[in-house]
Amino acid sequence: MEELTTPGVLTSQLDAAVGWARKYSIFQYPFVTACCGMEYMATASSHYDMDRFGAGFPRFSPRQADVLFVVGTISHKMAPVLKRIYDQMTSPKWVVAFGVCTCTGGFYDDYSTVQGIDTIIPVDLYIPGCPPRPEAVLQGLMMLQEKIQKQGRTVAK
């Protein structure tokens, strides 16, 4: 094991292999709350087909998922639930903020809306849009895959 963790040809190859394996077997947890869920449905279904990217299989248990899709506005009442679900996920895990409400709060600048989920949990990828079009979601997914590939075995969180 010792030599595997030192930088070298073998480890960089292993990193690439691990990254490749992870990026094409994304088990997502859709935390769907609001309007963005409609576009999430559209993206996941046959027309846009997220499954082409190896991310077609939603796991409805946070313990079996590795990418948390936060889809829709998070209110202050909902925030503790989101945090808890994030904590229940096992590493390595990534978080996607889907839609502008999760990125910044969007135009819901009010007493009940969390102004961006990054005030509660770390976020790896922001997909803006109100709601983002399926094409934007797919682009976001590809960017997330790039990120996963680059990270290799090093997991930040």
Binding site: H76, K77, A79, P80, K83, D109, D110, Y111, S112, V114, Q115, T119, I120
Partner: peptide, 18 residues
């Protein structure tokens, strides 16, 4: 009570977070 006119629209009272 937020819909009273004297409650500011963006006075937040988060349960968690900043």
């Amino acid at each position: 009570h937020p819909l009273r006119k004297d409650y500011p629209i963006n006075k937040r009272q988060p349960l968690i977070g900043p």
